[in-house]
Design a protein around this nucleic acid. Structure first.
Length: 282
DNA sequence: AGCCTATGCGAAC
DNA sequence: TTCGCCTAGGCTG
């Protein structure tokens, strides 16, 4: 379930559970065994996220770079560690100590888990666009890129070199909230429109960190009655193809864009038409 | 049980 | 553009 808010929340939770503690590091699966051995018994300083990347800081400036990919997981458990089941690439264990509970965390299914140095980490950060979750992040570089290309905005929002941390759910929902069609060329957006979208992310994504889910529906658009107890958040269009738009009732549409299914309301997000220059046109 | 899909992304073709 | 990663939930049967 990883968009930027998931990784930020994970970094905070890992820091809370293991920060400042000497940890046992292992790789039950074996693919990270040599690296785990180097880190085993050292102090875990804390975790940080950047976009969808996660960094674990250990003493002596050793860093573990993790990317969960589409279905990686890194759940934290309280209590004594149970035997690892399945393919656990990395396990952190902290023993009980002065008031703190024992805890452990198992990493599975990640596309990336590597012991790196600070140069590598800097390189990853250099390749990322501004992250709305990073305090003080400057949206200007993102606007520079968006305003200069014909590439569709629905593709640009997913490009981590343009914006870091936005994934398929935030893409779909942000475009709906701003009534923008996913295929609209970047350079046809007005600066004010982009800045409004950025500001929306600056508010939506921290809310996602707090709740650990993505909710984007404004109160006035929430369907009446109790909220379904599912794990997913309240969304306008994501994976709602064929269902009625929460605002206008039109059937939500879907189409693959940037390799992923994108979703939009054809009425609330009309296809962009450039302003006609001649009254003779059409 | 088996199949499909998925909040991602890099490598291979 | 397609594949691989190799998890997990939901649906079908």
């Amino acid at each position: 379930m990883p968009e930027g808010h998931t990784l930020r929340r994970l970094a905070e939770d890992l820091s809370g559970a293991f920060g400042g503690r000497v940890v046992a590091v292992s790789s039950p699966q074996g693919r990270f065994a040599e690296e785990a051995q180097l880190l085993d018994g050292t102090e875990f300083l804390g975790a940080d996220s950047a976009g969808k990347h996660l960094f674990l800081d250990f003493e002596d400036e050793r860093v573990v770079h993790i990317h969960l990919g589409l279905y990686g997981k890194f759940p934290i458990h309280r209590g004594e560690a149970r035997p690892a089941v399945g393919q656990v690439r990395l396990r952190l264990v902290a023993a009980a100590e002065d008031g703190r509970e024992p805890a452990y965390a198992d990493l599975r299914g990640a596309t990336q888990c590597a012991l790196v140095d600070s140069d590598h980490r800097a390189g990853v950060l250099d390749r990322l666009g501004p992250d709305p979750l990073r305090a003080g992040a400057d949206p200007a570089p993102a606007w520079q890129r968006i305003s200069r290309t014909h590439r569709p905005i629905g593709e640009l929002l997913m490009d981590q070199q343009v914006l870091a941390g936005v994934g398929n759910v935030y893409r779909a929902e942000l475009l709906f909230r701003h009534r923008i069609h996913p295929l609209r060329p970047g350079k046809t957006l007005r600066r004010g429109q982009f800045l409004a979208m950025w500001q929306d992310l600056v508010e939506l994504m921290p809310a996602g960190v707090r709740s650990n889910r993505i909710d984007t529906v404004r109160p006035e658009h929430l369907p009446p009655g109790p909220r379904p107890a599912g794990r997913g958040g309240d969304v306008y269009v994501y994976r709602r193809q064929g269902l009625p738009c929460l605002v206008c009732g039109t059937a939500i549409r879907t189409q693959v864009l940037a390799g992923r299914n994108s979703f939009w309301c054809p009425k609330c997000q009309p296809v962009y038409r450039s302003r006609a220059r001649s009254s003779a046109a059409s």
